[in-house]
């Protein structure tokens, strides 16, 4: 069995030491730094991109929140305005109808006053006419002049008794 040939042990041990030390130096000073930096760089890039994505997502979410807030504000403002306008218009309408009512009431009152005056005037006219007619009739019946004042008093007493 060649593995038990002790004469060949020193050369194998020597060259193993040389080769292994060479490989170790190569690995620790060339291979690990090189591959390590490549892998680190990739990991860094991935982390960076992930971070950026997270940031962008957060930004988008903030934008959405701001937009929704603005939307809500606008909506509530619109409702507020609507309510205010409705109230104002109602108040105005009430005021108008009230003033119209007052005006109408005043006009009714004035009209009633006019009607009353006209009635008074008419009654006065009727009285005068009645006194005249009564005086005229009395003079014709009695064939003498009738005192106008007396006739008027008589008419007044008749009308007043009614």
């Amino acid at each position: 069995m060649p593995q038990l040939n002790i004469a060949m042990f020193p050369t194998q041990l020597f060259w193993l030491a040389v080769c292994f030390v060479a490989l170790y130096l190569l690995v620790s000073y060339v291979i690990v730094p090189r591959l390590g930096s490549v892998l680190d760089e990739r990991q860094r890039r991935i982390d960076d991109n992930l971070e950026r994505a997270t940031e962008l997502k957060a930004e988008a979410e903030t934008a959405i929140a701001v937009y929704e807030k603005a939307l809500n504000e606008a909506r509530s403002k619109a409702q507020e305005t609507l309510r205010e306008k409705t109230a104002a218009m109602q108040a105005e309408a009430e005021a108008r109808s009230r003033s119209l009512g007052e005006k109408l009431a005043a006009e009714i009152k004035a009209g009633e006053a006019r009607v009353a005056a006209a009635k008074e005037a008419a009654i006065q006219g009727v009285r005068g006419l009645a006194a005249e007619v009564a005086g005229d009739l009395a003079s014709r019946l009695t064939a003498g002049a009738v005192d106008g004042a007396k006739a008027s008093t008589a008419v007044d007493s008749v009308m007043g008794s009614r």
């Binding site: 060949m8 050369t11 194998q12 060259w15």
Partner: peptide, 11 residues
């Protein structure tokens, strides 16, 4: 004996 052998060559 530290000869460069076939073993050394493959190392």
């Amino acid at each position: 004996d530290l000869s460069f052998t076939n073993s050394s060559a493959f190392m």
